[in-house]
């Protein structure tokens, strides 16, 4: 086990390092702006006084390295800064609207996670089951139809899927609501109902990917000599699958699932906008439109962190499920 532990710790450290470097990239990208935030916030016509105040408030008069570390230590303390919208409000009106970016993001993040969870609960079992079926009955009519359908669904933009679903499930047959106006303290059943359409859209996109990858992984596996050996030992098809294929299929399937959940991150942005779902994706896009850089920066970091984390999980789980690594020589 010592061997595996070392590898896992190595991967974890590597993931952490990647995250750190990513934070530097994001920070530098934002700070490469001409002029600085102050002008961006207040616009061209701002008085020098106001600009100076904001610069001092934001610490923009400090050198770049100092600013990076104070930003980083802020993140570690859970302080993601203050959004421009809030700052503007405060400087211009002198109000005490001291709502940090973190307070804006937190509830939306939990909404998004809820959506991702619902999607995963629907998509993962369907995709894995269909993928395994397509692999078992490869080159059959079912496999061919599945191939064309999934290929088409991967190729379609998320918003196309979303509108087709809206057309059929909300407009023509009003089964589900097309707007996902979720609020705090909403009853669970209603919350599910309102999130179902965006979740289905994401499911369609993710399932196609996941199913194709599962199929490829299983076909690859079924071609192994040890599967042929099991069949030549007279084992029943069921036993070949359960006893011989499955333990080895775990690693690739886990990998496929984690990779596709990571893929969800991108899909979530568009889908949340279509359904006006109050998640982090929508906040991100809104902030991009009004150039609220602290929010954009924070969202970007969260998305990247989630993405790295999922890839890392995939990596570690597949290490753990590899018998060669679990039982070293």
């Amino acid at each position: 086990m010592g061997n595996v532990l070392t590898i896992v710790v190595q991967r974890l450290l590597l993931g952490l390092l990647t995250l750190l470097v990513v934070s530097i990239v994001i920070f530098l990208a934002v700070n490469a702006l001409p002029g600085d935030f102050a002008e961006a916030i207040l616009g061209q016509g701002a008085t020098p006084d106001a600009i100076a105040t904001i610069r001092r408030d934001l610490g923009l008069d400090q050198p770049l390295v100092v600013r990076y570390f104070s930003w980083l230590s802020g993140i570690l303390r859970g302080d993601l800064g203050i959004s421009f919208a809030q700052l503007n409000f405060r400087t211009n009106l002198g109000g005490a609207g001291d709502v940090g970016v973190i307070d804006q993001i937190a509830p939306r993040l939990s909404n998004t996670l809820f959506l991702a969870l619902v999607t995963a609960m629907i998509a993962v079992p369907i995709a894995v089951a269909l993928g395994v079926l397509a692999a078992l009955f490869r080159n059959s009519v079912f496999d061919r139809v599945a191939n064309i359908t999934t290929l088409s669904s991967i190729s379609s933009p998320e918003f196309f899927m979303a509108y087709v679903l809206i057309l059929f499930l909300a407009v023509l047959n009003p089964i589900l609501p097309s707007l996902s106006n979720i609020y705090d303290g909403m009853p669970f059943a209603e919350r599910i109902e309102k999130s179902l359409l965006p979740a289905l859209t994401l499911t369609l996109v993710v399932t196609a990917h996941m199913m194709r990858m599962t199929r490829a992984a299983i076909i690859n596996l079924l071609a192994s000599p040890y599967i042929e050996m099991a069949r030549l030992k007279g084992m029943s098809p069921m036993r070949v699958i359960v006893k011989h294929a499955l333990p080895n299929a775990l690693a690739p399937i886990i990998n496929v699932i984690a990779l596709n959940l990571a893929y969800l991150i991108t899909g979530v942005v568009v889908v949340e906008v279509v359904f006006v779902y109050p998640g982090i994706g929508q906040l991100f896009v809104d902030s991009v439109k009004i150039r609220d850089i602290p929010v954009v920066q924070a969202c970007c970091l969260i998305f990247a962190a989630a993405y790295i984390l999922l890839n890392l999980t995939a990596d570690i789980l597949s290490i753990l499920s590899n018998p060669r690594l679990r039982h070293p020589k």
């Binding site: 040890y226 042929e228 050996m229 099991a230 060669r324």
Partner: peptide, 11 residues
Amino acid sequence: AQSAAASFNPA
């Protein structure tokens, strides 16, 4: 089989 290494199930 020819390759015992590949024909034994690694799991």
